[in-house]
Design a protein around this nucleic acid. Structure first.
Lengths: 221, 221
DNA sequence: CAATTATTCAATAGATTTATTGAATAATTG
DNA sequence: CAATTATTCAATAAATCTATTGAATAATTG
């Protein structure tokens, strides 16, 4: 094989892969599937897309071997084809957060309204778990909690938080986590908790990031 | 800011960033600039693009804040805007190498011809440096070696290797590195060395990967 | 087996991306 | 200041991407 042909093949394949990711909805699909497998209908619902359009985006990801599907009855369950895909999303996301002025601006603006700008890292959380008396809340939908969660965390889906807030002992420090830095559940939870006078902050990443660091997780049998 | 507007803004910005990378030439530019800054002319020459076309691709990368430029005389010197960009390239590249059948096939085919399939990792090289008597060759152009290299390495640009090969003591184990896994210099070097009966293998990553791991490097004053 | 349901397919129009060409700009040299 | 040089800009046509629409498929239910 000639040098030129080699380069052409390699880089055009990699560009194809990159193109498959290069769409706002498909990035959201990747992030959503990092929480576990989903049907076309569920994905379309989450992203407010038509079913046909969601299916089409999934075909693009499948064409790049980034997702795989398993048919059960007349449902197609899509999942990420492998873990490395999440690694790419992670580095892309972090580049955006750390280096893109426009994303930084959007995050600040959104979080100022919610008073949720303060966040702690996974490393800081690990320290707190060892040293302090900290309450960890998983505010994702229960289904996602059940599919795997941080061992010490309680499941309090964001839409149940308002009713269950009384359970929280006064003076208790609370750390809230959700799907990741662009998932608004944790921001909404912090807003709600602070309004009730509870000291709460966000984890700056999500459960998939915790999991990828090979930290202990609780999973169903 | 509404939840929907927040998500729309964030993900469309990230998709813009991804789109800026999603082209075979622009991926090559990112990789090339990871070796140091380059003028438009140099980039066009390396990738066999017209000057106007190379400039246009650079505008796209600049529009996404992925490269910056410094004008000197009538040359524009382009460089990567920050290090996180290389991290994205790295994870994308590794996804391709580890998970894409078509890329794996191309790499195998190319390296079978060059007998350069055997490679060692940076970790293995670090061990060898400590324990064994190993000769490390940097086969990139001299300019790149001078801009920074693995401390123990000798500079033997690939086009000088054939003449200088006599210097190598018999029985000496040789490790060759270049720009990265898709740079063919190390493959060509291994082919040449093996033809002359020298035990040689590639490093499976390149100098930018060594550097990003914060390992010691030799740099000019 | 007809009706229902989840998903995919196919066709289309509008938007975006790409390479090419040649002219415009702006710094340097003679 | 005219000529040269490196780069950018602008215009264009071909290719590709995107959302929408409605029909096709294939599994399940009554």
């Amino acid at each position: 094989m000639q040098k030129q042909e080699f380069k052409d093949r390699i880089y055009s394949e990699l560009a194809t892969l990159t193109k498959a990711m290069a769409n706002p909805y498909r990035l959201q699909i990747i992030e959503l599937l990092a929480q576990g497998s989903r049907t076309v209908e569920e994905i379309a619902g989450q992203l407010t897309l038509s079913i046909a359009n969601a299916s089409q985006h999934l075909q693009v990801l499948k064409g790049a071997n980034m997702v795989s599907l398993q048919k059960e009855g007349h449902y197609a369950h899509y999942r990420l084809a492998n873990e490395d895909i999440y690694a790419v999303w992670q580095s892309l996301r972090d580049l955006g957060i750390n280096r893109m002025a426009e994303i930084d601006r959007t995050l600040r603006e959104f979080r100022e309204e919610k008073s949720s700008f303060q966040a702690i890292s996974i490393d800081e959380l690990l320290q707190k778990i060892d040293q302090d008396n900290v309450l960890i809340l998983d505010v994702r939908p229960e289904k996602e909690y059940k599919a795997g969660h941080i061992p010490q965390a309680l499941s309090v889906p964001i839409d149940q938080l308002a009713q269950r807030i009384v359970d929280c002992p006064a003076g208790q420090e609370v750390i809230v986590y959700c799907r990741g830095p662009f998932c608004v559940f944790a921001d909404e939870a912090v807003e709600l908790l602070r309004e009730r006078g509870i000291t709460a902050s966000r984890l700056d990443e999500g459960f998939p990031d915790w999991k990828r660091r090979q930290l202990p997780i609780s999973v169903p049998l």
